[in-house]
Each structure stands twice: as structure tokens, then as C-alpha cells.
């Protein structure tokens, strides 16, 4: 039996949603809980959910291993064929460039003006262009798709703003991970703007952390360039694996801190912060930002203690318990403040 229109529409929506994939493959606890809850609320859709799951899982194919020497040999053969043709490519193309006859040129100009006028009218009336803001509360994360298809994963206590007519230019406070939909053919870039700098994207995945009076950008893959808020400084082109941080307040630029693993910079996406011999003076502010709490360290030398490993960040009590049990911190609650009195 074929799927009906309503089912197809739903499936199409679900399959575009990464959290649905996580549920189908049972890979992310939050997403599993979300979808279980959803299907409990809508028992009518349960069967369709299973259809969706089978579409995600599919057939366990094994890709034939790639033999690079074969690819090379085929390329050499191709280049040889080109050589024999004698590079006729360019002249052919030039010969085919058409010239518009004068009469047609006026029609072309008139129709362009017409289209522009109508377009501008629609633009003015339809999209009064109110900014759209996505925001997360303390201890909450949010994942969504922007109108251009780019994926945003917003960390706790963060705000993302954009205008409907320009979904590829966003303003960020807090922290977010972006997987940018490629639009290279049209040359349309994607821009993230923070207090400290502007990130211009030429495709793909990166993390922006604009907290604690500085902005840190981590590039996972692809190409981005940065223009910091200080116009004196020149543009920075980042390579995959680079971490750059800049503070407008202190006008302090740390460039190309290599050897930062992707794991540490973007681990929050999967509900865990990963630290690698990180001093508490750096680790605690990150946790403070996520929950909007305050740590008070009773002895200053405690700030130099380092922690290495993961800290879950979905639930404050679990986070505190981990800090106590795994990292041996003595923590006592005092209203919204947490007193750290020592390390065991």
C-alpha cells in the first residue's frame, strides 16, 4: 500500500530532522526521550514512526574499498584524451557566446526592470521583516534548521537572531554549532556576528562560543574567515582544526591554537563537556554559563587544579554529582551559589 499525502508530509519533515535520526538509531538519550514522548502523545502515528525508523536504518551495505591507484590510472587516461584533442575547450566556448540583437536588448532591459520592481514590492509587503530570535534557557539545548537549510545547534543560555529575508546572516550571544548548507554555486556566504567578531563561512561545520567577554571559533571542517571587531586587524582565514579566540574588551587575539581536538570544542552538542587537563579557572565558568549559577571557590589555589574527562551537562544535579564523585570536588549549595571548599 502506498503512503498517503499526510504520511508523506510527516515523513519528509521527520527525515529532515536530525533528532529523528538519533531516535531511530537510538544514539542520543535526549532525542530518544523526546520522540518516545511524542509517540506516546500520538499513538496514531506510532506505525508511521516505525516506517520512518526503517527508512533511516535501511539496508546494511558495505562500501567496496576504494582503490586509489585505479582512480589515478583512469584520470591519467582522461588527461591523455584531452591532450590529444589539443585543448580545444576554450575556443569552443568563446565561439558559442551569444550576442543579443539590439532590439532584444531593450526587451531584456525592460523585463529586468519589471521583475525588480515587482520583486521589491513583494519584498516590502510580504516580509515586513521582523527579526526572529531563537533562545535557550539555562540547562536547555535546541537544534533547528534555518530557512536556508543550515543546521544550528544552540547551547544553553544562548540567543540567535536573524532576519527572515536574510537567513544567512545571524547574530549570536552564547554558544552554537553550525552546519552550513552549501550555496557555493550562487556564492552566497553565511555570516555569524558576535560582539567581538564576524565569521564568514564558505561551507560546512564550525562552533562559535561568545561568552565571558570573548568569542572562540572552532572550525571542524570546511573554510571560514574572520573579521574581528577591531578594523585595524586584517582578516583571518581559518583551516579545519583551528581555534581562534578574540576579546573586544581586552583587544586580545589568540590565533591558530592548533591541536584542539574537535571533541573538546563541540562535545557539548552530545550533552557532555570534555576537558583535557583544564584548570578549574576555565572549566567552572563554562558550567556557570550553561546553568546560570555561580561557583565560589573558597581557596584561590583550587582554581589551578585541573580536571580531565567528561562532565554531563543536561541536568544540574547530575553535573554537580559528577564533579563530586568523579573529580572529588567538595561542593555545597548556598542558594544559587555553589561553594567549593576543596578537592579530595
Amino acid at each position: 500500500m502506498n503512503l498517503n499525502q499526510e504520511q508523506l508530509d510527516l515523513l519528509e519533515k521527520w527525515l529532515d530532522d536530525p533528532s529523528f535520526h538519533n531516535w531511530a538509531k537510538q544514539t542520543n538519550d535526549t532525542d530518544i526521550a523526546h520522540w518516545e514522548h511524542f509517540f506516546n502523545l500520538h499513538p496514531r502515528l506510532q506505525a508511521l514512526g516505525e516506517t520512518g525508523r526503517s527508512l533511516v536504518i535501511g539496508v546494511p551495505f558495505q562500501k567496496v574499498p576504494v582503490d586509489e591507484s585505479e582512480d589515478r590510472a583512469a584520470l591519467d587516461q582522461l588527461l591523455q584524451r584531452l591532450e590529444q584533442k589539443g585543448g580545444s575547450g576554450r575556443t569552443n566556448r568563446e565561439a558559442r557566446l551569444r550576442k543579443l540583437r539590439p532590439g532584444r536588448r531593450w526587451i531584456a532591459v525592460a523585463s529586468i526592470i519589471l521583475v525588480l520592481t515587482i520583486g521589491w514590492g513583494i519584498y516590502r509587503s510580504e516580509f515586513a521583516n521582523k527579526p526572529i530570535q531563537l533562545s535557550t534557557d539555562y540547562g536547555e539545548q535546541y537544534q533547528t534548521q534555518l530557512p536556508d537549510g543550515s543546521l544550528v545547534h544552540l547551547n544553553a543560555n544562548s540567543r540567535l537572531t536573524y532576519y527572515p529575508d536574510k537567513p544567512r546572516k545571524v547574530w549570536l550571544e552564547g554558544e552554537a554549532f553550525f552546519e552550513v548548507q552549501k550555496k557555493a554555486a550562487t556564492g552566497a556566504t553565511f555570516q555569524v556576528i558576535t560582539e567581538d567578531l564576524a565569521v564568514t563561512v564558505h561551507g560546512t561545520a564550525f562552533n562559535v562560543n561568545a561568552r565571558n567577554d570573548q568569542t572562540k571559533v572552532f572550525l571542524e571542517e570546511g573554510k571560514v574567515s574572520l573579521q574581528v571587531a577591531d578594523p585595524e586587524r586584517s582578516r583571518i582565514d581559518m583551516q579545519p582544526g583551528d581555534l581562534v579566540s578574540y576579546s573586544k574588551k581586552q583587544n586580545n587575539l589568540l590565533e591558530n591554537q592548533k591541536d584542539v581536538s574537535a571533541l573538546e570544542s563541540v562535545s557539548w552538542k552530545d550533552g557532555t563537556l570534555i576537558f583535557k587537563e583544564t584548570p578549574l579557572s576555565e572549566a567552572l565558568p563554562e558550567i556557570e554559563e550553561i546553568y546560570g549559577i555561580e561557583f565560589v571557590v573558597l581557596e584561590e589555589k583550587l582554581l589551578d587544579e585541573t580536571i580531565g574527562g567528561g562532565v554531563p551537562i543536561r541536568d544540574l544535579q547530575v553535573t554537580l554529582q559528577t564533579l563530586r564523585d568523579v573529580y572529588g570536588l567538595r561542593i555545597e549549595a548556598d542558594g544559587n551559589r555553589y561553594l567549593i571548599s576543596g578537592v579530595e
Binding site: L78, L79, L82, G89, R90, R93, K182, K183, A184, A185, H202, G203, T204, G222, K223, Q239, P240
Partner: peptide, 19 residues
């Protein structure tokens, strides 16, 4: 490091290296 679209348009402009 170019993505598919960059390579593809360079190829269509006649660049052998992109090919």
C-alpha cells in the same frame, strides 16, 4: 579542500585542476 560546488563551477569554467 574545495567543496563540491566550488570544484564543479571551476570545472565548468574549464579548469583542468578542478577536473
Amino acid at each position: 579542500h574545495w567543496d563540491d560546488h566550488q570544484l564543479f563551477s571551476a570545472l565548468c569554467q574549464g579548469q583542468k585542476e578542478a577536473l
